[in-house]
C-alpha cells in the first residue's frame, strides 16, 4: 500500500552544499544536499552503479558525486551526468539514474515527497509559525516510530519535557481528529507548586499533543489555562532502521507570559534558556509502564504501514 505524502526529514540549516546528509524516514534511506544556489535535493542513498551510499560522496557543481567511483548525479532528476574517464563526447545513457524525490522547503524543514502521485501544495508543518528565537535539534531514538507516536499520546512526558513544568496523565477529554492529526490535551502544573497535582482544582497549564494520521509531523504545544499558547514545537518523525525513529524539531516561546508563571520560568525565558527538551534517551521502563489509552484511536486511524514504492519527479 502506498500513502503519498510530504515528510519533513531535516532542518533546513542541516542541509548544505558541502557535505551530503544521510537521513532515514518512513523506511526510505535518502541523502539530502544543496547546490551552490541553495536549492535542496533528495536522492535515494544508493548509487545505482554499486549500491554504495551516496552520502559517502561529496557535493560537486554537477550534483552529488559517489565516493566509490565518482559517478555524479543531478539532484533534480537523479540522472547520472558524469562517469570519470568517459570521453567528453561520450554520453551517459539516460536510464542511468539514482531515484530522485521532490523536495519542498518550508517552515524551517526540508520536506521530501514519498510515494506516488502529484505532490500537495500544503506542507505538514504549515501550522508552525515561529516568532523570535527558535530551539532546534535532531536525534535518533531507540523506539519504533509507531510506538513513538503512540507514546506521544499516552505519555509525552516520556519523550519530552517543558522546563519547570510537570505533565499529568489526566486527559482533558478524548482524542479528536483535527486537520489530519489526532489531538489530545492533558493537564500540567508548574514544578514550583507545593501541593501535588491531585489537589489542583483547575490545571494552570495544558499540554496539547497532535499526532499525524499520515506521515510523521507531530505538534506539541504548552498552553496556559485559558489556552493561550506559551511554547510550540514541531517535531518531524519517521521510521529509521532497526526499529528506531528519526527526529528533528523546532520550537519557540510565544510572547505571552502567564500571570502565574513562576520566577524561574520567567528568568529562564529572559536568558533564552531552552524551554523544552526532546529526549534522545528514552526510559524504557517508563514507556513500558504506559497504559494504552488514547493511542487506541491512533491504531484505528493510522494506516498500518506506509511504503513509498517509487520516486516521483
Amino acid at each position: 500500500m502506498t500513502t503519498p505524502g510530504w515528510w519533513a526529514m531535516a532542518l533546513c540549516e542541516a542541509v548544505n552544499d558541502k557535505t551530503p546528509l544521510a537521513v532515514a524516514f518512513a523506511g526510505e534511506e535518502l541523502v539530502l544536499f544543496r547546490n551552490a544556489e541553495g536549492q535542496a535535493f533528495a536522492l535515494e542513498d544508493r548509487c545505482p552503479h554499486r549500491r554504495v551510499p551516496l552520502a559517502l560522496g561529496r557535493v560537486v557543481a554537477a550534483g552529488l558525486q559517489c565516493g566509490y567511483h565518482g559517478w555524479t548525479f543531478d539532484g533534480a532528476s537523479g540522472r547520472c551526468t558524469q562517469i570519470p574517464n568517459l570521453r567528453t563526447n561520450e554520453p551517459v545513457p539516460p536510464r542511468y539514474a539514482a531515484r530522485a524525490f521532490p523536495v519542498s522547503e518550508g517552515n524551517g524543514f526540508v520536506h521530501v515527497w514519498l510515494g506516488e502521485g502529484v505532490p500537495d501544495i500544503d506542507l505538514p508543518t504549515d501550522d508552525y509559525r515561529p516568532v523570535g528565537q527558535q530551539f532546534t535539534g535532531s536525534t535518533i531514538v531507540n523506539m519504533s516510530h509507531e510506538q513513538y507516536l503512540a507514546a506521544m499520546l499516552d505519555g509525552p512526558e516520556c519523550l519530552l519535557n517543558f522546563a519547570h513544568v510537570r505533565m499529568t496523565d489526566f486527559f482533558l477529554g478524548d482524542v479528536r481528529k483535527e486537520h489530519g492529526r489526532l489531538v489530545l490535551e492533558r493537564g500540567a502544573v508548574w514544578t514550583t507548586q507545593i501541593l501535588p497535582s491531585n489537589f489542583v482544582v483547575d490545571y494552570p497549564l495544558i499540554v496539547r499533543t497532535e499526532v499525524p494520521v499520515q506521515g510523521g509531523s507531530i505538534r506539541v504545544d504548552l498552553l496556559s489555562e485559558d489556552e493561550t499558547p506559551l511554547i510550540s514545537l514541531a517535531i518531524a518523525s519517521g521510521a529509521n532502521r532497526r526499529g528506531t525513529t528519526s527526529l528533528c524539531w523546532r520550537g519557540f516561546v510565544h510572547a505571552e507570559v502567564p500571570a502565574k508563571a513562576p520566577l524561574r520560568w520567567r528568568t529562564a525565558r529572559v536568558w533564552h534558556k531552552a524551554p523544552f527538551t526532546v529526549n534522545s534517551l528514552i526510559d524504557g521502563s517508563a514507556v513500558a509502564a504506559l497504559l494504552e489509552a488514547p493511542s487506541r484511536d491512533l491504531h484505528a486511524a493510522r494506516p498500518p504501514r506506509l511504503i513509498p514504492v517509487s520516486a516521483v519527479v
Partner: peptide, 13 residues
Amino acid sequence: RYFEADERLDMHS
C-alpha cells in the same frame, strides 16, 4: 545490499 536479489540490477560503465 547484496544479501538478496534486487529487482534493480546494477548499472555498468
